[in-house]
Simulated scan of single mutants.
Amino acid sequence: MITILVVDDDKEIANLISLYLENDGYRVLRCGNGREALKLMEEQEVNLMVLDIMMPEVDGLEVCRRVREHSTLPILMLSAKAEDMDKVLGLMTGADDYMIKPFNPMEMSARIKSLLRRSFRYNTEGKATTRPDILQIHSLEINKITHTVTVNDSPLSLTSREFDILHLLANHPGRVFRADEIFQRVWKEDCYVANNTVMVHICNLREKLEKKLGYKLIQTVWGVGYRVEE
């Protein structure tokens, strides 16, 4: 059975979410703060997390950061604030989707089903359940050990930097990476020239991928960064 962890200090909202999810056939766990959620994650297997931002002790953004250090489980983040920066912060922290309170429970249910489908497809096709050295998104295969990329078994020639950027983005589908974050992770240097350097490499990488795939794999989130969508 699929297990969903609901983390919200508002008991009425947590109960409402849990009721709808249980009616959809999910097993639901509940926590009232971030510290309790992190502890529970160590003790039980969770398939998806519904996570409120504003909570006592450890807030939702910090929980998301810590979870992303060791897990790619889908995270749907909730907030009572509607400002765009809240959404940007949530997605940059590693959340997969975002909803503003008050929300339609039926819309939440639909979004959760979509996140679970994507997660299941990734886990059955990608590195999580098959070979840990290979990532696969549809016809694209990225081999970390041999440092090679193929599309429909046809090799794609990439530079070392292009490969590292692609592997970083593909290893976290849906997550938005800022240009300076990509620079730090790939070049492992200070990021004072990150924006132009990363932009050039992303443009070259995107052009090579589109010629082989026939569609745009790497998406630009304007004013934020880049992500790979399955």
Results as ranks from 00 to 15, higher is better:
residue 191 C to Y: 08
residue 170 A to F: 15
residue 116 L to M: 02
residue 123 N to E: 03
residue 118 R to Y: 06
residue 165 I to W: 09
residue 190 D to C: 11
residue 167 H to Y: 14
residue 148 T to R: 15
residue 148 T to V: 10
residue 159 T to V: 05
residue 137 I to F: 06
residue 149 V to C: 12
residue 145 I to F: 15
residue 182 I to P: 15
residue 143 N to Q: 07
residue 134 I to M: 04
residue 120 F to A: 03
residue 194 A to G: 01
residue 143 N to V: 13
residue 125 E to N: 08
residue 176 V to G: 10
residue 171 N to D: 12
residue 178 R to E: 01
residue 145 I to Y: 15
residue 168 L to N: 09
residue 193 V to G: 04
residue 144 K to N: 10
residue 120 F to K: 15
residue 128 A to G: 13
residue 156 L to Q: 05
residue 179 A to P: 07
residue 192 Y to W: 10
residue 188 K to S: 06
residue 146 T to S: 14
residue 165 I to F: 03
residue 191 C to D: 02
residue 151 V to M: 12
residue 158 L to P: 07
residue 124 T to K: 05
residue 136 Q to M: 05
residue 118 R to D: 03
residue 160 S to G: 08
residue 154 S to R: 11
residue 178 R to C: 13
residue 169 L to K: 05
residue 138 H to D: 06
residue 141 E to S: 13
residue 144 K to A: 13
residue 158 L to C: 00
residue 114 S to R: 01
residue 176 V to Y: 15
residue 152 N to T: 03
residue 188 K to H: 10
residue 187 W to V: 06
residue 157 S to L: 07
residue 184 Q to I: 07
residue 167 H to M: 07
residue 170 A to I: 14
residue 123 N to K: 13
residue 139 S to W: 07
residue 172 H to T: 06
residue 180 D to C: 01
residue 185 R to T: 08
residue 142 I to H: 01
residue 151 V to I: 14
residue 193 V to E: 09
residue 178 R to M: 11
residue 168 L to S: 07
residue 186 V to F: 02
residue 124 T to W: 08
residue 161 R to G: 05
residue 181 E to R: 01
residue 148 T to K: 15
residue 191 C to K: 06
residue 172 H to M: 00
residue 124 T to L: 01
residue 160 S to N: 10
residue 193 V to Q: 11
residue 181 E to L: 02
residue 192 Y to M: 09
residue 159 T to M: 06
residue 160 S to F: 08
residue 162 E to M: 05
residue 130 T to Q: 14
residue 145 I to T: 04
residue 118 R to F: 08
residue 147 H to C: 11
residue 132 P to D: 00
residue 164 D to H: 12
residue 156 L to E: 10
residue 165 I to L: 13
residue 138 H to G: 07
residue 160 S to H: 14
residue 170 A to P: 07
residue 127 K to D: 13
residue 183 F to E: 00
residue 129 T to V: 00
residue 166 L to A: 01
residue 164 D to Y: 09
residue 125 E to A: 03
residue 131 R to Y: 09
residue 137 I to D: 15
residue 182 I to E: 07
